[in-house]
């Protein structure tokens, strides 16, 4: 019991440190998802509608990113960008790596969703005289969006998990803050557990939200 009180005491002492770490974790994740999704939609469009050379280049990009561990992307981004003269701090380099990782996933999701739409939809749109961009914005994209939203929400949870990798390059997000706290009070069991609990809470909330979105967006039938 005393040990637990001591733990609570330590948590209280470290409360601002933990909250700052949590804040940074959330910022990293949101930025990575936002940037990664914008890039990912472009990737998906290129994979679906691009001409042959474009498709080839973008396919090589996604395959390469998907074949590389995220940690390697983070380390490579951190070390390489500054070496070749792009001055980014650890936070920016890390977010860049996660956004690139996110883009390859979102790209595949977008491609999958667009290709799952029956060709009859495009034909029907053509038949009533819509141009391709009209067809895309009012027929194809809304349908694709419905299908990919739940998966996209899960990607958000993946990004929260991947944000822990930025601790390796010294970004003081929740995990690195936790390690710092542990190095002061040696309560590794308790504080890793606390970190786990916080991550679980965030991801579980995202997972539930994903299920909710899945119900909401399904077309009435």
């Amino acid at each position: 019991m005393n040990e637990f009180l001591a733990f609570l005491d330590q948590v209280w002492l470290a409360r601002f440190v933990i909250l700052r770490g949590l804040g940074l974790t959330v910022s990293i994740s949101l930025l990575a998802i936002a940037l990664g999704s914008v890039l990912g939609v472009l990737v998906g469009l290129a994979l679906t509608y691009g001409n042959r050379p474009l498709r080839f280049v973008v396919r090589a990009y996604t395959d390469f990113i998907r074949g590389t561990p995220v940690l390697v992307l983070v380390l490579a981004s951190f070390y390489i960008l500054s070496t070749i003269g792009i001055e980014l701090n650890a936070f920016q380099a890390g977010v860049f790596a996660l956004a690139v990782f996110c883009s390859s996933h979102v790209g595949e999701i977008v491609r999958g969703a667009l290709q799952a739409i029956p060709p009859g939809q495009t034909e029907a749109a053509k038949a009533i005289g819509l141009t391709f961009s009209q067809t895309f914005t009012s027929v194809l994209w809304p349908q694709a969006l419905r299908q990919m939203l739940p998966t996209w929400v899960n990607t958000a949870a993946e990004m929260v998990k991947a944000s822990t990798l930025l601790s390796v390059i010294g970004v003081a997000e929740l995990l690195l803050r936790t390690q710092e706290i542990i190095s002061r009070n040696f309560m590794s069991l308790e504080f890793y557990f606390l970190a786990g609990l916080l991550y679980f809470a965030i991801n579980y909330a995202i997972e539930r939200f994903g299920k909710y979105v899945e119900r909401k967006v399904s077309v009435p039938s």
Binding site: A157, T164, L175, Q179, Y192, F200, N203
Partner: peptide, 11 residues
């Protein structure tokens, strides 16, 4: 499924 693997490894 809802925990980052790195946290598990360090734990």
């Amino acid at each position: 499924r809802n925990l980052p693997i790195l946290v598990l490894i360090l734990f």
